[in-house]
Amino acid sequence: MSEEALRFHFDVDGDDFTSAGQASVQVKKLLRELGVSTDVIRRVSIAMYEGEINMVIHAGGGKADVIVDETAVTIVLTDEGPGIPNIAQAMQEGYSTAPDNVRSLGFGAGMGLPNMKRYTDHMEIESQLGQGTVITMRVDL
């Protein structure tokens, strides 16, 4: 892998639940082409996929940036949604504010953020009510 970091940018469409996950699928392919290990690829793609689903459910979509350097894969998810009022509460497994129709789609069990933390080596959430949320996740190579 070259010494310079590789950067990829994706727009996450907030209008269409069906398309949620497209960016994660692309990242999975890119990482595979770069020869990243299967375990890292899976952890990155699950964390990013949960993040994408969250942005579609809660924030009307957003942006995903993925940076690959020699030591780690970093995922930055940025949205202009309502923000997270209580991050500690949102991090609890089983806590969810997703509407019922999302649950009928197989999500909204309050596992999204905990899963993102579980599968990454470092996760940071910055959120401002009424302005949006930035989640930065890192998976070490």
């Binding site: 996950g21 996929y49 789609l105 596992m111 899963n115």
Partner: peptide, 24 residues
Amino acid sequence: DMMSDVLAYVKDQAVLLTGLVNAQ
């Protein structure tokens, strides 16, 4: 039927049985 649970708890399972029908 809960994809969040599949993402949380499943490890190296090759087959998924589900009653849920959507692209996710």
